[in-house]
Nucleic acid binder design. Sequence first.
DNA 1: GTCCAGGCTTTCC
DNA 2: GGAAAGCCTGGA
Length: 293
Amino acid sequence: MNYTLEQSQSKLIVKDLEHFNIKHIFECGQCFRWYLEEDGSYTAIAGGMVANFLQEGTTLYVEGVKEKEWRGFWHNYFDLDRDYGKIKEELSLDPILKEAITFGYGMRLLNQDPYETIISFIISANNQIPRIKKAVEAIANDLGDYIRTYRGRDHYSFPEPGALAEKTEEYIREAYRVGFRADRLREVSRRIADGEFDTSCIFDIEHKDAKELLTTLPGVGPKVSDCILLFAFDKGEAFPVDVWVKRVMEYFYFKRPATKKELEDSGERLFGSLAGYAQQYLFYYARELGIGK
DNA sequence: GTCCAGGCTTTCC
DNA sequence: GGAAAGCCTGGA
């Protein structure tokens, strides 16, 4: 993408951002480590950094990030090498998606840390976004490294797998309020820490095989697996079917109740290799408008 | 092999 | 008090 970077005193100014809206990006449910500040800016923790983003039009004011860090981390985190204009054009051939894209025009799929994403989405099962955010934050505050204090809040990085693997199920359940998910978090962390499960190889295998491999982890079913693949492993064809996607697909496309398999297959059938992008536009659209509820 | 009901922790609306 | 970005188990 052709944008320009400017360093102005303590802030980094990113100009001429296209297909980029910080609210759409953080509030489409793909990421849990962010805070909406009173001035409408977003503070996010990623890559061992705490950054604050305030968007005005196509300009982004960034606090806490140096130019080198933007180029070395945030550029890729925000998926800025991808041509969203082309993706949106192709998906807009579908009239329903055209509407969803008009609504969430600035959504981008973040490239997030694999382990943090795996843990976050195991926690997401049968859970609500505010609670998921609290649990992820509690884990980081307890086991992560202190980064800095910003607007009165202390921020910590997300820990390495070994840290959670060392804790007991009881401790994890009570300290982070994750209920029945506690032992899954411990076991998955242990497998990754011990090298039993190699996350890096998932980048190199195709979506279907990657999904099968991830679902061998306790707490990772088809939906959670597709979320992890879409948000951390660059698998744009992954189509996570959650309650909102079920609602929106039944409401707009099937116009009747659909089976689990019909819903899972509909991503590839309707949107092909862009199913994951379609899913995000539809999810944001459905949830913000309460469609099918 | 596939499908489905019931249970699961806790909090938020 | 029901619902929540579901998964796991057991049984048909």
